[in-house]
Amino acid sequence: MSATNGGSALSLRGVGKRYGRIRALDGLDLEVPAGSVFGLVGPNGAGKTTTFAIACGYLRADTGTVSLLGAGPFDAEQHRGRITALPQDAALGRDLTVAETLTYLGRLQGVPSREIRAEVRRILQLVDLTDRAGDRTRTLSHGMLRRVGIGQAFLGDPELVLLDEPTNGLDPRQAHSIREFIAAQRGTRTIIVSSHNLHEIETVCDHVALIDRGRVVMAGPVSAVTGRNDEVRITLGAGPVPLTEIRAALPDDQVTWDENTRLIKISFLGRPGREAEDVTSAALRVVLGAGARISTVTRGESLESKYLEMPSTPPPLRR
């Protein structure tokens, strides 16, 4: 992967975009670290696809600045072969075979003619479509077309790959396989994934941004957004609640109790050298010693919980 300015593979600053009276992006700021697998999360109409389209150069931002791989907004001369994308709802040509389509896109991508056959074979294996290589794309199911779409995004050796809802329409086995492949790319190239599947984002991505109403409302490493490294949650069953004992055992941490959910939340944010494993062990020793019954123990909050904490989204803004 080539070096990028400031370590960002993609940088959006104050980006705005309107569709007539509808404001899709409203001064969006986003930094995607190079080499990360970055998740883009948000409700329908939040601006994820528009963000993708601007990053890919399909759309032009009305305001703000865009920088891809440290070389300004998308420019075919600068970025060809370095950036690929799986666009949402884009259809591949219907009358050529899968192999012909991949060959065409691969050649345009810059794969030399002597290498293209091997490259197409590699991609077909990656998306498990080797046996359909000679079939016309019009004969493929929705899921198979999606796999061809994912495959074309990994033709050549792109530095930045943008995937819009990559596992949408795939069966669970295929979706799992694609997720594993994406996760394995961490550190070798930058991948940006937009998805409604929060579990997918949480397991695949190491960074995430939550977008709502055309703005980023929360962004950072997944562990930071979910509190995975600075919060332990213990849900208790009916019985004793050793809150005082826990506070005594963890005097430097913030311990809170929610009667309704019977949840003990232990926060150790900003405590250098403090590790979640130590806090969890200490707390559990106290809880078990007090004879309390434990329902669940988690580190931080799930991404889904964080997402649900976001205010429900009204229709896109109109001015």
Binding site: C56, G57, A76, A90, A91, L108, Q109
Partner: peptide, 16 residues
């Protein structure tokens, strides 16, 4: 119409 152009647009210039 099919947005198929988006597969090509990142690989070559619009003029080409």
């Amino acid at each position: 119409q099919t947005r198929g152009v988006r597969f090509v647009a990142m690989r070559t210039g619009r003029a080409e």
